[in-house]
Structure formats: C-alpha cells, structure tokens
Design a protein around this nucleic acid. Structure first.
Lengths: 346, 346
DNA sequence: TTGTATGCGTTATCAA
DNA sequence: TTGATAACGCATACAA
C-alpha cells in the first residue's frame, strides 16, 4: 500500500531520487541507492503498474492471441511464451480468439484496441485481411508463431516437414500413400494446407497421384476418418501421412481395431512428436512448440528493448524420428515384416 | 491516439462531462450524451487503461493462476473463464505456476504483488500455507476452481465422484477393484487424493480391501502403469477405477495390447468425460470443466460488482455415463459377456 | 548527485 | 446538468 513517497521519506530523499534509485536509470550515489532500496524492501514497496504505465507509456505486459487453447500445440507454445516472459518480468494477457465467434470479433474490435500490451504474439491465428489490418495498425510489434509473415514470424517449415514425411514412405517403397487430415470443403487451416502441399510435392516428384482423406484435426477425428477409409481392404492405401500426430495416433488405433497390423499392413507417419508419439511408436517429424514459444517471446522482447525494422523470420526444420509405425509395404522383396511389425532384412 | 480532451473539444463540452457521458455514471442530458458518443466514435476514442486504472483503482482485468496449461481439464477451465470474462469486457492475465519451479516462486513473490487485477481465479493450485497466505493478503477477491476453500470455490465433489464410480463396479458384482492413479511416494495432488478417498470409502463400505496402483496423471502414464499391473493374469484385478479419463484410456489401450478384452476381461471406469471418452466407449463420471470456469468467472464478477462476505461454495456432482468399458466380471451368473463386450441378460 | 515541478489521461470532488 | 480543478502514483526535464 505504500507508495514511492513513503519510500522517499523513509530514505530521507526526494521522490525523484527514490524513483531513480529503484529504476536504476540515472546516476545515483551508491550510498543513497542502497538506502532507498532498503527503505523499499522494508516497506514492501511495489510500484503501481498503472502509474508506471501512464508515466512511461510501457505496460510491461505482452498480449498473446490464439484461436484455441486445448490442443497440445497451443498449450505447449503458450507455456514456452509464458516461461520466457516470466524470466523478463513481463506479464501475459491472453486472448482466446476462436474463429467465427462473436468473441473473436469483440477481441479484434475492442480488446486489442485497448493496447494493454507493449507487443503481441499471434499463434496460428490465420487472420483475415481485416483482422491482419487491425493487428498491424495497433502500432505495437507483432510476432507470429505459425503463419506467413507480414509480421515477424517463428514457424516450422510445414510443407517441407510433410514432404519429408512422404519421402520417408516413398523410400520404403510405398506407392499408395494417402494424406489424412484437412477439411472436406470448409476452408483449411493454413497449417493443414501447407502440409498437404508438401505431401503433394513429394508425390508428384515421385510421379505418383495424391490422395486425400479428410479428417478433423484431433485424435477422435483421425480415428473416425481412418475407420471409414480403411474398412475396404482392397481400396485402402498402404501408408498414411497424417496432418499431425493426434490424427496419426487416431489412425493407428483405428487400424488396430480393424486388425490391420501397423506397420505390417499399414504405415503411418505423423508430424509433431506429440506427447503420445512414443507410446504408439509413431514415426514422426518432430517439432518443438514450446521452443517456438520461447523463440517468439525472445524475439518480441528483443524488439521491445531495441526497436528495429522488424519483420524477422525464423523458420525451423522438423527432425525425422523413425519409430515403429512405418515399414516397407508387405510383399516388398528384400524385407520381411514380422508379426510384431519389426523390420528384418532377410 | 486521441484522448478524452479531443472528444470533449469536438463535442463542445468539458472533459468532465465527456467522461460522464461515456462512463454512463452520472446524470447527463440525453442530447449531450449523444453528441459526446458521436464525437468519441468519430475519433475512434479508446480510453487509456492505465489512466482509468490509476483514477479508479480498478483494472478491469482478472488474473488466472494454474499449475499447468497442457492438460484437458486446465485448458477447458481456462476457455470457460476466458469466454465469460470476455462477455463482461474483462481482460485476463495468465500465470503459469508449475509446482516446484523458480517461476512459481517468482509469481507468488513478485507478479501477484503487482496486483494487475481486480480479482483472481486459482485453478487446482494446491497452494501451500505460505502461498495461500500470499493469496489472501492480496486484498483482492479470490475464487478457486478445485480446492478446499479458504477462498470461494467452484469444485466437483471429487470424493463422491470416485465413490460412485466404485459403486458402479460393485453393483456389477466386482470385488477385486483397484484404484489406478496417484503417486508412489511424492505428495499427491489434492484432487487425486480426494478421489482415492472416495474409492476407499466405497470399498470399505462394501467390506472389501482397497488396492492402489500408482500412475502418472496422463494417458501414457496410465498405459505404462496398466501394462505393468495387468501382465500377471492371476494377480490382476477385474476392474479399475482410474483417477481420470486420460489414465483410464491409457489402461484400456494397455488391456488391448495385452489381449485382455474390455469390458469382458477387465472393466474400467474413469472420471471426467474427456474428449476421448466416447471414442473408447469409456464409462465415466462426467464433469464439465468449461462450465466450472464459467461459474468461477461469474462468481468473481459478481463479487467485483457488489462485494459481499465472500467464501461462497459451489460444489458440483458428477454424472454417471455408462458406456461400454464396464460389465460384470466374467463368470458372473445371470449375465453373459459377449465377444464385443455387450452385456446380455440371459 | 539531488530536488522541484510538470506531465501522463482519466475519474471524482466541488461549485456553479 | 455542467465546468473547473484536484487527485491517482509514478517518471522525467530542468534547475540547482
């Protein structure tokens, strides 16, 4: 409850020197600085954030806006951002902008305009033109995680990740490879689209036709779509590139249910290296969303400390982790697929 | 960029009336109010939050503190809180206070003390005495989601939920029922402990011994623990009460891997009604964390609008959803367990 | 190195 | 109903 005036009085100095001693900015003699600090500690002085903001124009707060919270990727990114901001003494205010909701409109029209933050991190926001405009007109630095810039950006090379996932299957001699994920008709999330493009690129480079099986981006979504797509033994592909690990795991569970051995009868590769990937022996292209959060926060903090031209770009590459959900298609000469799906070179 | 002075000038009134007209507090003639509002709209006037806070002492912001973000329960609660706050025009600042970390200490020592919020929502925080003290001394209303009060609280009746889960199995004639979850030695999360107590209560009421199988509170955790505990066919229980659905699903996957039919050879009941529950036909005691978030936010907002004595308590009861992961133990007279696990009365 | 005085953008008090 | 003016709690330009 005590203000800087109290601290100043107790230390026997003016408010101005007290302020200087505590913010560490200007020149203050070591002795008085110590006295002021002791007084502040003794009184349990905590500066009023609103007064500081009003006087300095800085909030010491960062906004984070994302389309949802309850998916592995988003939660991980958020934790990464949070921990990095924490270490800089910055607060985090969160905006949950689910696409197509009134809440999202409200956020863009009202909440962001309050500019309660020094900078903004947008995670997989996929803003439309109007929203992007709003974002940029804020006059605050913006860093995106996932997305195609216009702002500074930290992102996985989505297309390349999917391309390499596909190439992994191609190298195993698969030719009938389907992409599992993405919507049926409604507009795709940009991430899904880019991953699909990577898959297509690899397929056409191999002279093979693409094949798309729509699936909602969740484990149950992948499960349901896979149960459907895999039931017809004659028509089903020998391998799947899943849009993400959750969908991939859903597909593996579906295969088990249909008594299709993985990887003996079906290979599945994901993208993410999700928390569940190891348990399901899922071959995947690993990314590290937590690290992306940290990187984005760090980028923003740097920009706040010393403003630059901005639009930096930080593109990360996924790392292939081969586990036991991928193998050569059955019948491939030179390899034997055992019961347990282990691959033995004959 | 334009302030209330600009609005006042454009409307031809003083700053004071402009403020009154916009905040809607005092008496202003309809005509001037309209003029002021038009001026504000024309200028795109947005009040400075720090100035408002400094003048009023209110931040129009709510703090949310939770021990983690990347679990279904927490993400759902957070989404519920967020959406409710949004509809009241309140901002949300998030504190990720993972137990035992330096970050958590920093949050309690520094961040909360800044009092950037009018009130606080603590989700499954399990604060120790020192932390609780800090929380209460803040001089701001605190609402907990999950937890044993000292603050106002919105919570599931955890013990009763577990008790009913156990009773469901007892009614099916199970006698060898184990509790899956909770730590080996390290202090349990309070939720886990309370659920275990509910299980114990039902077991001893039935004159049966309790049996505890430790498992980390995650799907892979439940899987690993169940694989371990179920391998010995003679020693394994006929039914499991899982501490939560994620652990329950892990156990179901483990059972499938061990070729133990569910529910034919093993019944599993969870608590939550997680996103995955339906896909795995999991019998469970449903709670609605999103709704709990909404309720907590609503409670806090009410308290902010008209302060009361506080410590209200809002205890919710779980709802039993019987799916297909529970059945009578094999060999029970009067029932036949079919291949697919469907229960037929003979 | 320190103190004085002013500004930050509102709301709130007091007169008119 | 309205207007002038004083807080709100701090940082900072300027003067000493």
């Amino acid at each position: 409850m005590s203000g800087i005036a109290d601290v100043a009085r107790r230390a026997g100095v003016s408010k101005a020197t007290a302020s200087r001693a505590l913010t560490g900015s200007s020149q203050v003699s070591d002795q008085t600085r110590r006295r002021v600090q002791e007084a502040a500690a003794a009184l349990g002085y905590v500066p009023s954030t609103s007064a500081v903001s009003l006087a300095t124009g800085r909030t010491r707060n960062v906004g984070v806006i994302m389309p949802r919270l309850n998916r592995w990727f988003f939660a991980e990114v958020l934790e990464g951002i949070q921990s990095e901001l924490l270490s800089h003494g910055l607060d985090l205010t969160l905006y949950d902008a689910r696409p197509g909701t009134a809440g999202r409109r409200r956020i863009f029209e009202d909440f962001l305009a309050r500019k309660r933050f020094d900078g903004l991190i947008a995670v997989a926001l996929d803003p439309d033109d109007h929203e992007l405009d709003r974002l940029l007109r804020l006059g605050r630095p913006v860093v995106s995680v996932v997305g195609d810039a216009a702002t500074a950006v930290v992102t996985l090379d989505e297309a390349h990740a999917a391309e390499r996932a596909t190439e992994h299957l191609l190298a195993l001699q698969h030719t009938d490879i389907a992409f599992l994920g993405g919507g049926e008709t409604q507009p795709w999330a940009s991430v899904d689209r880019r991953r699909y493009e990577g898959y297509q690129r690899a397929m056409s480079a191999a002279g093979l036709p693409s094949r798309h099986i729509p699936a909602p981006p969740s484990l149950p979504g992948g499960y349901a779509a896979a149960v459907d797509a895999l039931s017809d033994a004659r028509a089903r592909p020998t391998a799947l590139v899943a849009v993400c690990d959750e969908v991939a795991v859903g597909a593996i569970i579906a295969a088990r249910r249909l008594a299709i051995p993985v990887p003996g009868g079906l290979s599945v590769v994901g993208i993410d290296d999700h928390e569940y990937a190891e348990m399901f022996s899922l071959t995947t292209l690993a990314q590290n969303p937590r690290q992306q959060g940290v990187a984005a926060a760090r980028m923003l903090v740097g920009e706040l400390q010393s403003p630059t031209a901005m639009p930096a770009s930080h593109v990360l590459q996924a790392r292939l982790i081969v586990r036991n959900s991928t193998a050569a298609p059955s019948g491939t000469p030179g390899v034997v697929v055992t019961d347990t799906g282990l691959l033995d070179h004959a």
